[in-house]
Every structure is written in structure tokens, then in C-alpha cells.
Design a protein around this nucleic acid. Structure first.
Length: 1123
RNA sequence: GCUCGAGUGGCGGAAUUGGUAGACGCGCUGGAUUCAAAAUCCAGUUCUUUCGGGAGUGUGGGUUCGAUUCCCACCUCGAGUACCA
């Protein structure tokens, strides 16, 4: 019986489907294991051989785990919402649902051919209403939640409302919009319903806001930052502009720190973790306020403490009394302007708590000099309130609410007395806030730079500078975002004429504007420290601004000095002589004391825009009442995507859903109704945007656990049983998209008690890309020529295609020219005259490299010229002249590129399965190289694994009949088997699939050499091979007389006793270079080995009479003779 | 620029608690079989050589009895990211 892969593979694929072999149970005695692939977007092009790589790896692991006695969940589905289907719908008018359905069918057929052990009963599709019902449901949960920083988790919005009702918002420590007005409980109650809604919206985890978005006019939609590559849309390469729109956003920034922390707990590739870390972009530093000159408020008399005194203070701060601790716990988490400090100095007095920005001091009563203190504090502009220990311990809530009251209604006007003195000098005062990671270099500030778009620019610019500034702004606004990004070399800017005041020295600092400062990062303004930052340095040099040096023993004549460690600060008042870390802390401390700044952590991570102006996505479960968004009740989900006539945006610029005629919410009937009913009082317009591509993929791994549950995302029991993905395999391109958003949603769902773990995937592996090996032919396009009188260019009429290695002589070229009827560029047929000219006429030959379809090229890089000519895509080459090598073959040149249709290097897995079989495809994809690595595909290599399978088959057969012997295996045979078990097990556990394929080859080669056909060897061997080549393994398994699928068999157990050796072939090295080997018994002692080796004739020959200085012997490993 | 990763035959790659560099496969060369081809089987295949041997894992140093493996500097390639204050 011949090995017939087509029959065998068909047979077993059918068997698996009919017997539901890989259906996972939600209850089992066995330990669970969840293996997941990133589900595919079903594109119209179908699969190429690169796609299944990760699926094969995960399938091998899943099958292996089944052999190892695990209850394995290995599902698959489709991420079936997306732009390509919509683009196709716009072009053809076909409904995206229809094309998506067709594409899925193709995908499924292709996947099935490879023989995956997916549990298809759990398939999910993100575009199915039964699925996106839960996407909408999660959206509602996010809307109904806020992030409580004190608890460091998301909580229900009703909790927040209760707090507002009771004490207003001043005690709330939430992640929310930056500038929220504070209000008391009374004020809250006085708000209208709409006002309350507007306030709550500022706290919700998904919220509407006017955001500047990346608008792509060609696609008629908003793109996420990661959908833009080099300033144009990733899909289609259309230009992108910035535009303000009202959009749904996700408050992912609330989770920035936890997303960072979580990385420590998961086994993901370091590069992927690094890119998430960079993406989140945490920087620790300070916000610093600079007063614009004219406002002389900063002349407060300030008593500074030495660093030593400050250290003592720090200690004091850590040893608080019970009452002190109680109160501190209540007020410590206030942020921004309401932030409190404990054990602080004001003047020479030590106060218990102080809120610098609100000029409020809170103290425990009973201090000696209370009257003096109060007088001094009031004089300094502070309000003081005092409590007794008992008050705090007995009713801290009351104390806190008094403090809140004092914050909101300050009694003393801080600078009243001083304002009188300075009022003549200033009409108006401004502050410039900057974020800096280097507050320690604050004494190196010699100018400030604002982004040209900064709102203060117009207000502070002096009349004298007005023209220059306006000219600069209009010049930069003409440059597109892209130009600005691309061109980092040109230094440009303008002086505003205004000055800021240094918070410590009081010096006047010129304020400039410059486009190297980005409006949308930080505050859109920087304090420039030219000695420590290269951009500031370049700017200062260019505009001849002072560059003060504040580093000890550092030369800054050539470039800025950005090094932090190992440099001491100098010329910096109280910071002089300190190293970076201490200087940083002290600078922040002093800034806070002055009220000129505070320590701040800044993240690069922006809140994620969640609205898309597209049709083919999840509709929002949202309608608008009086302009405020309202959630549709959970029990009416899903809100199904409406039918539209056109998939384009409407003529008045509304998203495609604006074309729907049935898209209004009947709040009484609780259903979607015709837009005509909008006249009714109880019918409201529905949201026209849809959700982005990442919505559906951010929780699908949970849905697989219980995919048909109509009442929950998944039942508590199932979630509790499967918990998380144990192994997740997919591409690294999702590092800052899907993988970040999915972690964010998982953490949110965890906070809400919906899922049991806050990281969804324990281990993740990125499979590398399989690259195509493109084939090229050289096409002669034309010749440049030159004579005494004229020169010009001939274009070829009949294409001339030249084999890769062939070199042509001038004579040959002239002959070709004649044959091809070359035409003069201008159109005159002059080739006859040309031929009359002498040799040496042709100056150069213009060669074009043309991709040829790899289908027409064999393994020796020879092109099938006839096939190539006849291909419908190559009509222009039908009559082309082909110049072959001397042996009449035509060779192509090769290059490794990304696999893509346009490069004609796509290899279809169907063709491979047809010719070599799925088992060969699986083995070969693994054999190509390490899973994580990018590697080129070369179909010719597949013959190696294909003949391996034939050899394997032969082991179980005598000529054409199946035949295995019952005889006891020999020691050698057992050794081969157990060596293989050990290596394969180690390799699978470490995901080194390529080396286990070679281990199989070695085993089969050795067993063939031993002529082994013993059942005791071949039966376990079939199990070892089965994760990789499941079809042939099943067939052999059933030929061996087994009734059940091989997937139910236990993995063979390795026994070390079979590998014990009695002797070893020692390498004998001289000075570390291996020269010869010798067989020695492993029983020999070191001395005996040395004796034997030294007596050996080759040793003597190597030494040539010298006496070795030293002989190193590692028993069982090596002998090294030195000398 | 920054961050990360990688450099080993003609090609894909193997070998790291430091211990025989090039496993396994492709390709290539020669042979067997065949009328011939495919398939199959056998032998060879890092370079160099005066056939004793010598050199060799991007380059240059270092540690070591011994380095593809560890350390330092540099070069090249790839990926990500970018005026992030």
C-alpha cells in the first residue's frame, strides 16, 4: 500500500468532524489548557502559506497537551467587521455581510484542509448580532463606570452619584476630564438633570468629547494613530488631516499604570512588552508654573531650609499619630489644585497639613503659639482651620467636609495687600504651565518655548513683536503635520517679546514660540534648558540665547549634556552640589512649597477614540435625548445594524448610518423604528457612528468559554473554569493595538467582577512572518545611443527578456534591436539607420526588473517560458524575445520580499496540500526555522519533509503490505525511541518546533538503518509524530489496530535507563583545538584517562616531544592538553 | 536619533549551566537503477592545502585550560518608535 496523502487526509478530516473529536468540555476531571490563535480577518484574497504558521504551532501544542492529559480548549473564529469589506461594498454595492460570509467559507475550507484540531462548535464572528450584543453590553458597562483612584479600580457610576449628593465632588479622586469645576452637594442637587448628566459624562469610562482626530477625507472616516503609517492611511495610503469632531472615547489612560504593572506578571516577548511600555510612555517629572513678567506675585518672603533639615522633616512625616494618620488618609488623595501636603514648613513654622494652591492650612489645635501662628499665616495669605484629636477620631467625615468647605470658600484673599503695591505694573497676569522630566535643571532655564498654537501666544505677545510672531504662525500653519514631523533639522521660531519669571531666582526669561514644541503633548510649552537638552541647545545657538551651564565639570561648548547619572548640579542655589536623584526630589519639594508646581507623572498614552464613521461595524446602543446620550437598556440588545442604500457618508457629511431610514429609537415601544416617527415625542435619533475594529476583538477570548450563552458574556462557572488563555499565538503587529486594548477591557471587566483574572493571556508568542521568494526577469526596455552628431533613446517594441546570468555583446544587442523593431522615442522608425552605424554606438541598456509569478518557476530557478507567455496577465510578452542561457534554460533572479499578490510571490496552501499533503505542509512550516523568526518560503525545500513522511510510512510496511512485528525491541531501537521522546518533549515545551522535526527525521533514518518494524517502537513513535502530522499518525494508529483516535492516546513516557552508555568518544584537544577523538570507557578515573591519552601515538605526534604544562580532563565531556 | 532583536557553508537553519562548530533539510557533484525521465538508493559537499595539516561562527580586543556561547568597543542588517520636553 502506497502512502496516499490525499485519501488519508480526507478520511481523517471527515472522521474528526463527524466524531467531534476536538470538542472541548466545560467540565472535566483533567486540568484545563486554553490554546488560542489571534482570530483572522477574513479577507477576500484567502489564505497564503504565511497565514497558517501560527495556527500550526498552536495546533501542535494543543494536540500535545491532549496527549499529556489536559482538557484542551482550542477555538477559532473570525474578526469579521472591517474596512476592506466596506470598501468593496462601496465599489460593488454588495452587502458587506454577504462578501464576508463568502470569504469566511473560503477561509474555513482552506483551514480545514490543513487539519487543525479546532473546536468549531465554539466559533464566534464579531459581525454576528448574537456576538456584538455583548460588545454593546460592555460599552454600556463602560458608560456606567468611573475610575476611582483611591480604590484604584473602576466602580459603578451610581457610587459617584451618591458621593455627589452627599458631599459634592471635591473629595472625589477620579480619572476624569482635566478641568472640572468643583461643586458642593447643594450645588449638585441644584443642577438640572441635563447639567448633572454633563458632569457625569466627564467621569465615565467612555464619554463623548470634542477631540482632534485624524480625519481621512478619501475614506470618509476617522483613523486611530496606529492606522496611520507615515502620515497617510495604512489602508489605501490616503492623506490624513486633523479635524475636531464629537467622538466617543475610552478612558484607557485611567489604566495606564496598571497596564504597565501588569506586564511584569505575564510571560510575553520582551520586545512586545517594550513596545507597550514605550506606547504608554510614562515620564516622571513635575508641572511647573511660570508667571509671565508683570505679575510680581512671586515676591513672597520665603524662608528656606537646608537639605539636612528637610531630611529630618521627611522622617517626621513618616511617624504620625493616630489622629494624624486618620485625617491624612482622608485627604491625601486629593489631586491637582486641592492636593494636600503633610508636615510642611510655612515660614519657620511647621504645619500639620497644607494645601498650597488653595492657601489652606489644617492643624491640630493645642500648639503653644497658636495666636502668633495664625497672625503670621494670615499675613502670608493662608487660611487656617484647626481641629482637636478627638474631633478627628470621632467624626472624620465631618472634619473632612469642613475642610472641603474651606477649600471652596476661602476666607482670606491671599495677595490682597500685595496686589495693591503691584497693581500699577500689571493689567492682567498669566501663567505658563510646563511639564518637565528634569525639574532638577530648573536653574538652567534661559528661555521658554511655546507651541505656535498655544493659546497664550496671542495674549502675551508685545506690540513690537506682533508682526514677527504672526508671520511665523502663518508660516508654520501652512506646513502640514507631515512636513513638520519629517523635517527636524530646520530650526525656526520667533520671540514674543514677553518674559516669564523664574520661580526661584525671579530672573526674567524670554518667551519664544517654536514648532519643535508640539501643541498636543504635555502642556504645549517647555521650559528650555539648553545646557541639558539638545533641541533647546540648538534653538539657543540658532537664536543666540544665553546657555548657562549648571553642571559640575561638564563641557557644553559643543553639545548639550543630557546624562543624568554621574553628573552633579552646579550654579543652582539650593540644588548645587546634588546629584540627579536628590536634586529632582528637592526641586519638586521646593516647587510645591512655593505653589509653583508639583510632582507629576505624565503618560504618552491618549484616551482612545472609539467612534468610526463607517457602516461595517458594531452600532452603538445609544440614542440622543436633548443632545445628551442615553444608553438603551441591556435587555433590548442587540441593536442590529440597519440596512442602508449607500455605504458612503451622506451628502451632508454624516456617517453612512445617516443613510438608514429605520434608525430611530422608540423609547416607549423599546425598539428601533422608522426615522419618520422622530416627530413623536418619545422617539429619538440613534447614534450614527459605529465602533472601531478593535472593539470586537477585545474580549472574544472570554466569549469562547461559553459562546452560545444568551444571558451573559459567559457563565460564571465557565469563566471560572477556563479563567484565561494559557497560550496565545499571533503576530507582533498587534502590540500596541489589539493587545493593549484587550488588556484594558480585561482589567475593566475584572474590576466589575465579570471576569476572574485581570490579564487575559498568561503566555504569548509572536510568530514571525513567512516571506515570499519573488522571482524576476530582466526586460530590456530600451537603448541609449550616441554618434558624432546626435544622441537619443530607442524604446523597444517587442519586449526582450533576458535570462538572469546571460551577458550580451554589442553585436547581439544590435541584432536584437533589429528583431524587436525598436522605435525612436519620438516615434520615428529609425532602426534601419541605426544599424548602419558603427559598433560602440550603444551607450547603455535600460533594464527593467519585472516580477514573474513564482508558479512558473521551478526549484532550479528556471522559468517555464511557455507558461509565462500564455498567462493572461502577460499578454504583452506573448511574442516577446527570450534570451536563454547557453544550456537553453531561462533563469530568473530571486529576492526575498513580503508575500503579496502584487509581487506574484504568493504560495497558496491549497496547492501545497494537493501536491504534498497537509502533513507535509505542517511539518515544513515548522521546519523552516524558529517560530518567532521571519523566514523566506521556498517550495523546493518541501521535498525533504515529504520524503520523510514516505520513509516513516515505509517503516510500518513491508513492500506494499502493513506489517509490524511483536518481537521485543533491541537496546539500540529502544535508545532511538527514548532519545526521540526526550528531545521532542523538550522541544515542544520550549516551542522549538523546527528542531523536533529534525529529531523525527533522525529517528526515522536510524530506525530504517536498524530495519526496525517492532510494534513496541512504532506505536509510541506514531503518537510522537501525531501533533505535527496528525493524518498519517491517525492512519498508522488505526492500521496498528486501535479503535479510538490517536488524539486520545497518552504521550509516551521517557525512560532514562535506555540511554545509559558505557563508553564515550572523547574529543582530545590541544590548547583548546580538537585534534582527534578516542573511545574510552566511562568507568575510567581521571588518572587512568590521562595515562591512556598520553600513551596514544597521536598525542605524541601533536606534542612533538614537548611536555604538556597541564592536562584537563572533564570525565564524560572532554580532554584538553595544554602546552 | 532612541529602544529592541539578529549577524554561523551556496541557502533555511542546528549547537549556549563555556567543552567535538556546521545536526537536520534544500541545493549542488558523482554513482547505481531506467530505453529515457520522474521517483528511489549510495557517496561527497565550510574554506584552504605541498594531503602532514592549517584556518574558520560580522570586525577588533579581553576573561578562560577551552568562547558561536561571557565581557568591552565597533561595523552591518532587521523591527518598532520618533521634535514626548
Amino acid at each position: 500500500m502506497q502512502y496516499n496523502h490525499i485519501e488519508i487526509e480526507k478520511k481523517w478530516q471527515k472522521y474528526w468532524e463527524e466524531n467531534q473529536t476536538f470538542k472541548a468540555s466545560n467540565t472535566s476531571e483533567k486540568p484545563k489548557y486554553y490554546v488560542l490563535d489571534m482570530f483572522p480577518y477574513p479577507s477576500g484574497a484567502g489564505l497564503h502559506v504565511g497565514h497558517p504558521l501560527g495556527y500550526i504551532a498552536s495546533d501542535i501544542y494543543a494536540r500535545y497537551k491532549r496527549h499529556k492529559g489536559f482538557n484542551v480548549l482550542h477555538p477559532q473564529g473570525y474578526d469579521s467587521f472591517g474596512l476592506p469589506a466596506e470598501q468593496y461594498a462601496i465599489q460593488t454595492g454588495q452587502h458587506p455581510a454577504k462578501t464576508t460570509e463568502e470569504n469566511i467559507k473560503t477561509y474555513r475550507r482552506q483551514l480545514d484542509r490543513v487539519g487543525f484540531s479546532f473546536d468549531w462548535s465554539r466559533e464566534v464572528r464579531t459581525s454576528n448580532p448574537e456576538y456584538y450584543k455583548w460588545t454593546q453590553w460592555i460599552f454600556i458597562q463602560l458608560f456606567n463606570s468611573w475610575y476611582n483612584k483611591d480604590a484604584d479600580k473602576a466602580e459603578d457610576i451610581s457610587v459617584l452619584e451618591k458621593i455627589f449628593k452627599k458631599e459634592g465632588n471635591t473629595t472625589v479622586n477620579a480619572v476624569c476630564e482635566d478641568e472640572i469645576k468643583s461643586f458642593s452637594a447643594e450645588e449638585w442637587k441644584a443642577f438640572s438633570k441635563a447639567e448633572q448628566e454633563a458632569v457625569l459624562l466627564q467621569y465615565r469610562l467612555t464619554f463623548l468629547s470634542d477631540t482632534e482626530v485624524n480625519w481621512c477625507p478619501a475614506l470618509g472616516t476617522v483613523l486611530a494613530n496606529d492606522e496611520i503609517v507615515n502620515g497617510v492611511s495604512e489602508r489605501g495610503g490616503h492623506p490624513v488631516v486633523r479635524k475636531k469632531m464629537t467622538q466617543w472615547s475610552m478612558r484607557i489612560s485611567a489604566y495606564a499604570q496598571r497596564l504597565l504593572d501588569g506586564l511584569e506578571t505575564i510571560d510575553w516577548p520582551q520586545p512586545l512588552k517594550d513596545s507597550q511600555t514605550n506606547w504608554i510612555g510614562k515620564s516622571v517629572g513635575a508641572m511647573v508654573s511660570f508667571d509671565v513678567a508683570g505679575d510680581l506675585e512671586n515676591t513672597t518672603s520665603e524662608v528656606k531650609l537646608s537639605y539636612k533639615e528637610l531630611e529630618a522633616l521627611k522622617e517626621l512625616r513618616q511617624n504620625l499619630s493616630k489622629a494624624e494618620t486618620t485625617l491624612w488618609n482622608e485627604i491625601k488623595n486629593k489631586k491637582g489644585a486641592s492636593k494636600f501636603r503633610k508636615k510642611y514648613t510655612v515660614g519657620t513654622f511647621l504645619v500639620d497639613y497644607v494645601c498650597l494652591a488653595k492657601n489652606l492650612i489644617v492643624e491640630f489645635s493645642g500648639k503653644e503659639d497658636e495666636a502668633v501662628r495664625t497672625a503670621f499665616f494670615n499675613n502670608e495669605g493662608f487660611n487656617v482651620i484647626r481641629f482637636t484629636n478627638e474631633e478627628v477620631i470621632q467624626n472624620v467625615v465631618k472634619v473632612v467636609s469642613e475642610i472641603n468647605f474651606a477649600i471652596q470658600f476661602p476666607k482670606v484673599q491671599k495677595t490682597e495687600s500685595k496686589k495693591k503695591i503691584t497693581s500699577s505694573a500689571v493689567e492682567k497676569s498669566f501663567k505658563i504651565d510646563v511639564f518637565t522630566t528634569r525639574p532638577d535643571t530648573i536653574f538652567g532655564v534661559s528661555f521658554m518655548t511655546l507651541a505656535p498654537e498655544h493659546e497664550l501666544v496671542s495674549k502675551i505677545t508685545t506690540d513690537a513683536q506682533k508682526a514677527a510672531v504672526e508671520a511665523y504662525i502663518s508660516a508654520t500653519s501652512k506646513r502640514s503635520e507631515r512636513d513638520r514631523m519629517a523635517d527636524v533639522k530646520t530650526i525656526s521660531g520667533a520671540f514674543t517679546g514677553a518674559y516669564a519669571l523664574h520661580p526661584f531666582s525671579g530672573k526674567q526669561i524670554p518667551i519664544w514660540i517654536g514648532d519643535y514644541v508640539l501643541a498636543n503633548y504635555g502642556t504645549g510649552a517647555v521650559m528650555a534648558v539648553p545646557c541639558g537638552d539638545q533641541r533647546d541647545y540648538d534653538f539657543a545657538k540658532h537664536f543666540d540665547i544665553d546657555i548657562p551651564n549648571i553642571f559640575e565639570n561638564v563641557d557644553i561648548s559643543e553639545a548639550a549634556h543630557a546624562d543624568k547619572d554621574g553628573t552633579k548640579i552646579a550654579n543652582s542655589d539650593f540644588l548645587s552640589g546634588l546629584k540627579y536623584k536628590k536634586a529632582l526630589k528637592l526641586a519638586i519639594f521646593e516647587l510645591e512649597k512655593k505653589g509653583a508646581g508639583y510632582g507629576k507623572i505624565n503618560y504618552r498614552l491618549r484616551d482612545a477614540v472609539f467612534s468610526r464613521q463607517r457602516y461595517w461595524g458594531e452600532p452603538f446602543p445609544v440614542y440622543y435625548k436633548d443632545g445628551m446620550p442615553q444608553m438603551i437598556d441591556e435587555k433590548h440588545l442587540p441593536i442590529v445594524l440597519p440596512e442602508v442604500e449607500k455605504y458612503l457618508p451622506t451628502e451632508d457629511g454624516k456617517p453612512p448610518l445617516g443613510n438608514a431610514t429605520e434608525w430611530a429609537w422608540d423609547s416607549r415601544g423599546k425598539k428601533v423604528v422608522s426615522n419618520e416617527k422622530l416627530k413623536n415625542k418619545t422617539v429619538y435619533p440613534l447614534e450614527l457612528n459605529t465602533m472601531p475594529g478593535w472593539a470586537g476583538s477585545s474580549y472574544y477570548f472570554n466569549r469562547y468559554m461559553d459562546p452560545h450563552n444568551e444571558n451573559e458574556i459567559a457563565s460564571k462557572e465557565n469563566l471560572e473554569y477556563w479563567k484565561e488563555v494559557d497560550l496565545y499565538i499571533g503576530g507582533s503587529e498587534h502590540a500596541t493595538g489589539h493587545l493593549l486594548y484587550a488588556r484594558f477591557w480585561q482589567k475593566f471587566l475584572f474590576d466589575k467582577g465579570i471576569v476572574p483574572v485581570d490579564e487575559f493571556a498568561k503566555k504569548l508568542i509572536n510568530q514571525g512572518m513567512i516571506l515570499g521568494t519573488s522571482a524576476f526577469v530582466n526586460v530590456i526596455n530600451g537603448f541609449a545611443y550616441k554618434t558624432e552628431n546626435e544622441s537619443g533613446f530607442w524604446r523597444i517594441k517587442t519586449p526582450i527578456v533576458v535570462s538572469d546570468k546571460k551577458e550580451l555583446t554589442q553585436k547581439e544587442i544590435l541584432a536584437l534591436l533589429k528583431k524587436s523593431k525598436a522605435k525612436l522615442e519620438k516615434g520615428q522608425d529609425k532602426y534601419a539607420e541605426l544599424l548602419k552605424l558603427k559598433d560602440g554606438l550603444i551607450v547603455s541598456v535600460e533594464l527593467l526588473k519585472k516580477h514573474v509569478n513564482v508558479m512558473f518557476v521551478n526549484s532550479s530557478d528556471e522559468l517555464d517560458v511557455q507558461e509565462f507567455r500564455n498567462d493572461s496577465l502577460n499578454v504583452e510578452y506573448k511574442k516577446a524575445i527570450f534570451i536563454t542561457e547557453s544550456d537553453d534554460t531561462f533563469k530568473v533572479s530571486r529576492e526575498v520580499e513580503k508575500m503579496s499578490k502584487s509581487k506574484y510571490n504568493v504560495v497558496n496552501p491549497d496547492a501545497i496540500c494537493e501536491e504534498y499533503g497537509a502533513d507535509s505542509l505542517r511539518l515544513f512550516e515548522m521546519f523552516l526555522g524558529p517560530l518567532e523568526q521571519a523566514k523566506p518560503w521556498k517550495t523546493s525545500g518541501i521535498s525533504g519533509v515529504s520524503s520523510f513522511l514516505k520513509k516513516l510510512w515505509k517503516l510500518y510496511h513491508n513492500e506494499d503490505t502493513f506489517e509490524v512485528s511483536k518481537e521485543k525491541p533491541t537496546a539500540d531501537e529502544l535508545k532511538v525511541l527514548h532519545k526521540t521522546i526526550k528531545k521532542v518533549e523538550e522541544d515542544i515545551e520550549s516551542f522549538s518546533f523546527n528542531t523536533s522535526v529534525s529529531t523525527f527525521m533522525i529517528a526515522v533514518n536510524e530506525l530504517t538503518a536498524l530495519k526496525c518494524n517492532k510494534r513496541a517502537i512504532l506505536e509510541p513513535l506514531a503518537i510522537l509524530v501525531s501533533p505535527y502530522a496528525p493524518h498519517i499518525a491517525e492512519e498508522l494508529w488505526s492500521l496498528l489496530g486501535n479503535k479510538d483516535s490517536i488524539s486520545t492516546a497518552d504521550f509516551p513516557v521517557f525512560e532514562a535507563s535506555h540511554l545509559v552508555e558505557s563508553s564515550k568518544t572523547y574529543p582530545v584537544s590541544f590548547n583548546g583545538k580538537m585534534r582527534f577523538t578516542m573511545d574510552l570507557s566511562l568507568d575510567l578515573s581521571k588518572d587512568e584517562i590521562e595515562e591512556t591519552v598520553m600513551a596514544h601515538e597521536k598525542t605524541q605526534a601533536q606534542l612533538q616531544g614537548r611536555t604538556p604544562k597541564k592536562v584537563i580532563i572533564v570525565p564524560g565531556k572532554i580532554i584538553n592538553i595544554v602546552g
